[in-house]
Amino acid sequence: MKHVLFRKRVTVEYPEVRRKLPPRARWRHVLKRHEDGLERCIGCSLCAGACPAHCIHVVAEENKDGARFSPGERYAKIYEINELRCIFCGYCQDACPVEAVVLTDKLDFASYSRENAIYTKEMLLEPYPASDESVS
């Protein structure tokens, strides 16, 4: 009796309360930005090439004067990750030459349809300017 009633609770009130995950936790991808707000991603497709689950789809486009998304010539027009297929190996993060795609500790993947599990570039991009909720 004593063990059941008076032991410290092991559950937390998710989602109001979130447990701190280990520092190297690998969950949902985030596309990072430079300090000035430009996207880090250059649309090189190396993440898609490294992905063993083939869950990343990148279509690149050229930056133009007046429509600049990233610092160089090239940016990702479409960047999609199918999080249902992803095995969270982190190879994409390893492959990325500009440290754009990063696996974070966000893990709210639940959705009502399979389509919603395909994360588009807008969903993956870090908000700018950074809000309080954004991942550290």
Partner: peptide, 9 residues
């Protein structure tokens, strides 16, 4: 062809 695809794709 510019930026259309990488050779391995």
């Amino acid at each position: 062809f510019r930026f259309k695809a990488r050779p391995w794709e």
